[in-house]
Simulated scan of single mutants.
Amino acid sequence: MNKAAKIMGISFPKFTMDQCLQILSDVAGRKKTELFHVVTGNPEIVMSCQHDDELRGIIDRAGLITADGIGIVMISRMRGGDLPERVTGCDLLIKLLETGDREKWSFYFLGADEPTSLKAAEVIARKHPNVSIAGRHHGFFKEEEEAKIVEEINAAAPDFLIVALGAPYAERWIHKYRNSLNAKIAIGVGGSLDTIAGKVKRAPEIWRKIHLEWLFRLIKQPSRWRRQLILPRFAVRALFYREKS
């Protein structure tokens, strides 16, 4: 059985991207029972779980947690956890779309602004013609509109519900409706639709290979500096965190 690496009390299974894809392929191929919630766990989520019991409960209940960020992987290795690689929301979504093109999976996309949502759907339809785009809705909705969105998702009955509302809001939203959503798998993917639509440029592959994607994003979006202050705080706290047995 695959063991997990603990980061500040959160258990990250030691799965590679290929293993995660296999797990999700198996779930997508089964008859729906309950919603399978995938959390792409980044340092921000891990830090929030330290003082937010509700979020911690959501994460603990997830069907799968992936290591979204090199910081998670590096801390794991420094503490002997040895996570094999990072599995980010963006990379996972891209791989799922590639696999979905072969398997003819259906997707519902929730998130981003309306022009970005529309553009992302157009790009996906062009690159992956065998993927069924069961529906989409922008992420700038009011609470009173949520019931209608859930109805629309349920009518579409997608294999994958892709929620691009940002962490940890996406995780809370999925959990809020997990017992009424007619989808097999729900995944929070951060700003991945912005990347697919071309609104945000992703770091070149060489930057990703040397684990400096975060720096590339900071250079391109200097306004992110406040958000990225959490990274050194996470590194220090996680490195010296005393895990409970």
Rank of each mutant, 00 (worst) to 15 (best):
G166R: 02
R86I: 02
R242V: 10
P168A: 05
L97R: 09
Q228H: 08
V46G: 08
F12H: 14
P232A: 08
A134F: 06
A157G: 06
E151M: 08
S76Y: 07
W105Y: 14
E171N: 12
S117M: 06
T33C: 06
A125E: 15
H137T: 14
K3V: 10
E151Q: 15
W105R: 06
Y169V: 08
D82T: 03
D18N: 13
E243P: 08
L55A: 11
T195H: 10
L215P: 03
I58F: 12
K176Q: 14
V27M: 07
P204W: 03
R242K: 15
G63S: 04
C49V: 03
F160D: 02
G190P: 02
R79K: 15
E151H: 13
G198N: 11
L92P: 03
V87S: 13
I153P: 00
L231G: 06
L93W: 05
I162H: 04
L212H: 05
R224P: 05
S106M: 03
E205H: 11
A157I: 01
M78T: 02
Y108M: 03
S48Y: 13
V123T: 13
K3A: 12
L229A: 09
I94T: 14
E151N: 15
R242N: 13
F141H: 09
G41P: 02
I7C: 08
G89S: 03
P84A: 01
C90V: 11
W225G: 04
A186E: 08
D113W: 00
I187M: 15
A62L: 00
K148A: 15
R61M: 04
E145V: 04
A167Y: 02
K244C: 00
I149A: 06
